[in-house]
Amino acid sequence: MTSGLIFACAGVVLFAMGTAGVVLLDHLLRRILAFNLMGSGAFLVLIGLAQRDGMPDPVPQAMVLTGIVVAVAATALALALARRLFALTGGYGLPQSEAKDGND
């Protein structure tokens, strides 16, 4: 098992944990962190799997760099919305009223 493959497997585990986190957690900050975990897992798979034979590959590295910037943008957007919601409602949870009827 090469180091690239180990990274890819770790990425799969992180991705699964992150996805479960986004689905299960209620606190918005935790969900945002879980989303970031998910993204990092996918990036690890992209980098690790492509370089599983030990040869460096610049293409996935550049893709991950792009992906990280997109994830930063998404995180900032999510944090801005969460903070505004906190300022309005005083809580970091989504109101339960019409949700949860089909959440997986």
């Binding site: 798979v45 992209l46 799997l49 492509a50 293409v59």
Partner: peptide, 12 residues
């Protein structure tokens, strides 16, 4: 995120 993991697998 699901889509991206799929892309990562395809590239791999």
């Amino acid at each position: 995120g699901l889509y991206l993991l799929g892309v990562a697998l395809i590239y791999g």
